[in-house]
Computed example of a mutant assay.
Amino acid sequence: MTERVVAPDARRRRRPTKQGVVLSEELIVATALRLIEEHGAEALSVRRLGRALGADPSSLYRYFRHTDDLMLAIADELIGRTLRAWRPTGDWLADLRELGLRMHAGALAHPRAAILSAYRVTGRVHEIQAVETILGVLRGAGFPDPEAVRIYHAFVDQTLAFGALDSAHVALPKAAREAEAEVWRTTYGTLPAATHPHVAATARYLRESMRHSSYPAALDLLLDAAAARLAAVGGRTDG
């Protein structure tokens, strides 16, 4: 897609496509998301999207100005899917932990899209809702505004970074993932204590731990630090 502006009142297509469906932003985003997972970033082309939708490629400009506009919509949809599946309980620690785990799981469910979108700022409805919601949880817990923003920033960046990191690993061919996991047994597990005493002493734990994402542990460390910080500034830590 290249830059092209279509008047808002002319954007919605009323006639069905060749496949008998009426185009919408939601349909285009869902189709693009599927194609990205199947083919990677190269799937975001007008020609490929038009073919998948059974529509004239030029009709996509009624909804998105260019591929980056579409990419931001995809990023926002991933956020929206997480928010729709999350229900706050009023316990700020439990709520943020659950939200973080859902965000991470959402990235792994769409690893190629997560890699492409983790570093983007969409300014769209679901992202705005997420910012408002997380800040509300933190301010409701008693964090002063500067602390609420500081912890919000760390929480979101940590989650997105792990989502991208683990998504990149998931996107590897299965044989490559298995080969890398074996390195912890065949290389690190055989290093002698005489030359690498710390690796040798912890080899069995490394072999098990390094096969899995460290995000849950990192999230707990961050939330523990946030709770300690809240106690230091006089807020409540019991949820």
Score class of each variant (00 low, 15 high):
residue 2 T to C: 02
residue 4 R to S: 03
residue 4 R to Y: 04
residue 5 V to D: 13
residue 5 V to H: 09
residue 5 V to W: 14
residue 6 V to F: 05
residue 6 V to S: 03
residue 8 P to A: 13
residue 11 R to K: 03
residue 14 R to P: 01
residue 14 R to V: 14
residue 14 R to D: 13
residue 16 P to D: 08
residue 19 Q to F: 11
residue 19 Q to S: 10
residue 19 Q to W: 04
residue 20 G to H: 03
residue 22 V to N: 11
residue 26 E to P: 00
residue 27 L to Y: 05
residue 27 L to W: 08
residue 30 A to N: 12
residue 35 L to D: 07
residue 37 E to A: 07
residue 41 A to S: 12
residue 42 E to A: 04
residue 43 A to C: 03
residue 44 L to M: 06
residue 45 S to G: 09
residue 53 L to G: 11
residue 58 S to E: 10
residue 58 S to L: 09
residue 65 R to Y: 02
residue 66 H to G: 06
residue 69 D to V: 14
residue 70 L to R: 12
residue 73 A to W: 05
residue 75 A to R: 13
residue 75 A to V: 05
residue 76 D to V: 02
residue 77 E to I: 02
residue 77 E to H: 15
residue 80 G to V: 01
residue 84 R to T: 10
residue 87 R to L: 08
residue 89 T to N: 14
residue 91 D to E: 10
residue 91 D to H: 13
residue 92 W to Q: 09
residue 92 W to I: 00
residue 97 R to T: 04
residue 97 R to N: 11
residue 98 E to H: 09
residue 98 E to R: 08
residue 99 L to S: 08
residue 101 L to N: 03
residue 102 R to K: 15
residue 102 R to W: 10
residue 102 R to D: 08
residue 105 A to R: 08
residue 106 G to D: 11
residue 106 G to V: 07
residue 106 G to M: 13
residue 107 A to M: 15
residue 109 A to H: 07
residue 111 P to Y: 11
residue 112 R to T: 02
residue 112 R to E: 04
residue 113 A to G: 13
residue 113 A to M: 11
residue 115 I to E: 14
residue 115 I to W: 09
residue 117 S to A: 15
residue 119 Y to F: 06
residue 120 R to V: 00
residue 121 V to P: 05
residue 121 V to T: 10
residue 123 G to F: 11
residue 125 V to W: 06
residue 126 H to K: 08
residue 128 I to W: 01
residue 129 Q to K: 04
residue 130 A to N: 02
residue 130 A to I: 05
residue 132 E to C: 01
residue 133 T to P: 01
residue 135 L to S: 03
residue 135 L to C: 01
residue 136 G to E: 10
residue 136 G to K: 03
residue 138 L to K: 05
residue 138 L to N: 09
residue 140 G to I: 03
residue 141 A to E: 06
residue 142 G to H: 04
residue 142 G to L: 02
residue 145 D to S: 08
residue 146 P to K: 02
residue 148 A to I: 10
residue 151 I to M: 06
residue 154 A to E: 07
residue 156 V to G: 01
residue 157 D to K: 14
residue 158 Q to I: 06
residue 159 T to W: 10
residue 159 T to M: 14
residue 159 T to G: 09
residue 162 F to I: 00
residue 162 F to P: 01
residue 165 L to F: 15
residue 165 L to D: 01
residue 167 S to Q: 02
residue 168 A to Y: 08
residue 168 A to G: 15
residue 170 V to F: 15
residue 171 A to I: 01
residue 172 L to R: 11
residue 173 P to D: 05
residue 177 R to W: 12
residue 178 E to G: 06
residue 178 E to L: 12
residue 180 E to V: 04
residue 183 V to W: 15
residue 184 W to F: 15
residue 185 R to G: 14
residue 185 R to M: 03
residue 186 T to P: 06
residue 186 T to I: 09
residue 187 T to W: 08
residue 190 T to A: 14
residue 191 L to H: 11
residue 191 L to D: 01
residue 194 A to N: 11
residue 198 H to C: 01
residue 199 V to I: 15
residue 201 A to E: 00
residue 202 T to I: 06
residue 210 M to L: 10
residue 211 R to V: 01
residue 212 H to C: 07
residue 214 S to V: 00
residue 214 S to I: 00
residue 218 A to C: 08
residue 219 L to D: 05
residue 219 L to Y: 06
residue 224 D to Q: 13
residue 224 D to N: 08
residue 224 D to F: 05
residue 224 D to W: 11
residue 225 A to S: 14
residue 226 A to T: 04
residue 226 A to I: 09
residue 227 A to W: 01
residue 228 A to Y: 10
residue 236 R to M: 05
residue 236 R to C: 11
residue 237 T to E: 04
residue 238 D to R: 12
residue 238 D to I: 05
